[in-house]
Design a protein around this nucleic acid. Sequence first.
RNA 1: GGGCCCGUAGCUUAGCCAGGUGGAGCGCUCGGCUGAUAACCGAGAGGUCUUGCGUUCAAAUCGCAACGGGCCCA
Length: 1050
Amino acid sequence: MLKEAGQYDAKLLEQNIHKFWDEIDAYSQVREQRTKGPKFFFVDGPPYTTGRIHLGTAWNKIIKDSILRYKSMNGFHVLDRAGWDMHGLPIEVKVEGVLGFKSKKDIEKYGVGNFVAKCKEFALSHRDEMTLQFQNLGVWLNWKDPYMTLRDEYIEAAWWTLKKAHEKKLLEKGLRVVNWCPRCETAIADSEVEYSEVSDPSVYIKFPIVGEENTYIVIWTTTPWTIPANIAVAVHPSFEYVKVRAVKNGKEEFLIMAHELLKNVLKQGRYQEHEVIETILGEDLKIAYKAPLGHKVPKQNEFPHNVYMADFVTAENTGCVHIAPGHGIDDFELGMKHKLPIFCPVGPDGKYTEEAGQYKGMNVKEANKTIIDDLTENGLLLASGKISHRYGNCWRCKTPIIYLATEQWFLRVTDIKEKMLDEINKVKWYPDWAGSARFADWVRGSRDWCISRQRYWGIPIPVWVCDFCGEIEVMGTMEELKNRSAVKDLSDLHRPYVDNIHIKCRKCENRMSRVPDVFDVWFDSAVASWATLNFPRDEKTIKEWWPADFITEGHDQTRGWFYSQMGASMVSFGKAPYKSVLMHGFTLDTEGKKMSKSLGNVVSPDEVISKVGAESLRLYVLSQNAPWDDLKFSWDEVGTVHRMLNILWNVYRFPLPYMILDNFNPVDSDEKLASLPLRLEDRWILSRVNSLIKKVETAMSEYNLHKATRPISEFILEDLSRWYIQLIRPRTWREANDPDKLAAYYTLYEVLVTLTKVMAPFAPHLTEEMYGNLVRNIHPDAPQSVHMCNWQPAKEKFIDVELEKRMDVIREIVEASSNARQKLKRKLRWPVKRIVVAPKNEIVIEAVLSLESVLKEQTNAKEIVSLKTGETWDQLGVEVLPNHAALGPAFKKDAGKVIAQLKSADGRAIKKSILETGSFELKAGVITADMVTFKDLIPPAIASAIFSAGDVYVDTELTREIESEGYSREVIRRIQDMRKELDLAVEEEIRAAVEIKDDRVAVLVLEMKDFIAGEVRAKSLMIGPEVEVDGELVKDWDVEDVKMRMGIGR
RNA sequence: GGGCCCGUAGCUUAGCCAGGUGGAGCGCUCGGCUGAUAACCGAGAGGUCUUGCGUUCAAAUCGCAACGGGCCCA
């Protein structure tokens, strides 16, 4: 049997549903039930296990959940292991913070094994916390058996991939300039560099030219600390350079720089006068210079210093670029091209090494000042100031990065770039530009991928190098390492356990040792699509599932996971690891600014859930905007969604008491719907809900979640709540087993059950609750959960597009008539004599004709009249407006008389005659069409309003009958109000008495006594000018200036 | 500096691809309803469609540029 429902309490409801899901293990049942269906392989982009989830992560998982629920209902066998990204520097930094560590030395002292254990503990505990938070959102993924990057089988997937890269000669060790964090003492990826505005030195330095007395080439830099590593100067081959004689305080010197930048440089150096001596094209600038700090850095004196040409030189500052191949990417490439020494006198801790001579031991950033002082001292500083610009920081510890030339391991993805671009085209991107424009652009500009990190908590790079001959071998699996090393007991593939395993070199039989590095953490998630299938340990599953059918992440993952997966997959399998990608946006604050702790504008999912529940949050993020647009969070809009759900809940619970009272038991509802006398409004709502299904299907086929959810809200508010429920109300409180009432019951029941299925993917809690009552309480053998139901396709037999159109017209007319009523302040409770519709087209006539009863009821009109198209209602008066400009010349001095006669004549007759014959005869003369214009005159008791396809006239003239009914309804409303106050049950009968202190009104109301008694369920009812009023509740009322006293009791 | 996306009423947005009088919701003001009631419904006010230039008979819509925001890169 159906049960009544109380007010909508989202939190309580959601808690109960979560409990219910746990009890029956709903998730597992749903997935198992679909194992025979077509496969749908989804790979969860693994969130990083630090701290709590934020709104963006919540949105991400809600999108995933909704799509997977939809796919599952549509019969797909969904594979969806949740994923966790658990390695890497972010966790190391957090753990270092907890332990109060400042540098790698602290970690070494503490013991790598202990440190790694702490990192693991941190990752696992945060995984548990975050799992709960995701579950609170109602997100269904395989939480029991998630993939975790710290598991041995996952590590093997990464190892196997690297071995593939090695086999395909795409793995390379080399000296490269990398982004280096001097605090973390490791290389970091381009994607781990975060830019911020900082103030740095801006210095102009003069490099003395060899063989030319008092002549210098001028360079500019923001990093004076790289000057000890200077090896060359670069100029643009096609720029024009000049040699200038410049004078400052009576001293002259000769400077070389780009011609167009001359003025600025001389101003910077405060030269008082100058003269261009010579103009030279960049490509002809063949000069050597002396190291500016040779006296401090002896090693510098061993290197040649020359000027080279480079296209990357821009016409900024001096047009001459200081080149330190050990400290810059362009510098390094220029150095390689000209076989220059890659001089890098800086250690991993960001301090100068032995090679930096007198600067040894100094922190480079702190050395800036010393170097500027030293240059001043030897007269080579032209100018020194400050500049505010964007500079890269380590995204985790915020330390400014430096560029260092170091030995690193690289994946040569640039070799397979073209193939990667081909694969991008084969992937279906939502929206299209995410792939064709954004991702393709990123891939085109990508460089070789530096995959090594000099850290501890990560997947150890499985490369063993021979201590003697340098031979390289890559271990692809744990098994392989065991066999090659004869270490039988290998329980953990992390550092430090793998660090001490040695193998014998195949070439020279000497000892091989593992390189100490770990993987860039992006490499971990890069292998997720096969790691989640337990490949390479399990070689069978991958054949059945891979590649992924679908992934979805935020647009920041273009450079991140979309790319890392693509790269790793191209290396391993030579094709894209996913078939379709939905790229979604970011969550921003109401201002459109990003949410960040420092701005204090962060809204957490928990905060939203605690206020309005997860369901409102879900529908809010799904419907607010297109998935790929950024979402500006707004509490107001969340509130609006919550209100919509509340209305749905009220719509759902409204009929329950009546249905229960009537023992409504819709076991054979299909049959009943076919046999009961459905009204047109019943057929209409059935048509609407089935049209809705089609809309949702169309939107979901393109993952347009906003276009799927918005029509659902609209249906609930406009069609169900504001219209259908209003229409059927009188039918629901009819007492007998009336087929007309049953038709409404069965229709509403069908609509609500259909709606729960359409909404289930998006609002899994609310629909589960409704389903439990509406379906499970009636059919005990129905699927246990709405999420076990099949998607219900639209029932075409119910769809009637014409009817939908006609109902739209009726709704417009009703709106217009209530607008008109308002003009004359006539309440809806008071019937009106008639409503006249002047239609613009035939559809309106058909609509009024076929849906007259609906129109009558909703407008509370005694009669509905529809005119023909173009017909003027004959009750309207016509005002004739004389056209003086035409009448004057035509009638001259009689014009005044004509005008007077026009005013007193019957306007309607004039209009009719003019329209039919073109003229009208007055006593004073014949007037023609050009002499007059007409205006409709609306009688005082009539109000009009327009709608899109015509006019509506409401005749509010009072008749005895109307007054009688109007006052009666006033009485009824007040008695109902009192019933409410006494908290009476709907079906409970009362005794009532009404004293009306106006004889005329008392008589009018008395005429409706039976009607009133029926409406208020009164077994006895007394009405009259002098009635004794008593009972449990007695109240005095003022009804339209008539004093009434009413009393009711059981 | 470059790539991609976004900019419409006080707020959140539809319309833009396929040019032809800008639609909603929230909020506000006024009113209605009172057997969904700590609910619900109607009406009204409110828009230089970020700005400028161009294409066109016609531009929110197409093109170019600028400005502001987001993500990514340099």
